[in-house]
């Protein structure tokens, strides 16, 4: 009887541990996928900001060039 209870307990333990492992596994997968997306998004943002800077610079230079011949 006692042995049976012990067996049950250890089985429960194993199940719990397994569940914990799966949960942890899942959390890491989750974070991994997030990071993969995040890197892509960060790179896109970097490119967008650079694009904006370049466009501003072009606009500035063009305005300057249009002004100069008149003066």
């Amino acid at each position: 009887m006692y042995a049976l209870m012990l067996l049950q307990a250890s089985a429960d333990d194993a199940v719990l541990r397994e569940m914990e492992r799966l949960q942890r596994n899942f959390t890491f997968l989750n974070s991994g996928l997030w990071v993969a997306w995040l890197i892509l998004v960060v790179y896109v943002l970097m490119m967008v900001s650079r694009e904006r800077k370049l466009k501003r610079e072009i606009a500035g230079l063009k305005a300057m060039l249009e002004d100069k011949p008149r003066s």
Binding site: V44, I58, L61, M64, K68
Partner: peptide
């Protein structure tokens, strides 16, 4: 897509460079 966008930015950069040169020449 990333490469194409980045490539276009390089072209912008070259355009800026040539505009700069024009500005200097004036």
């Amino acid at each position: 897509v990333f490469t194409a966008v980045r490539l276009r930015q390089e072209q912008f950069q070259r355009e800026i460079d040539s505009l700069r040169r024009m500005a200097h020449a004036l």
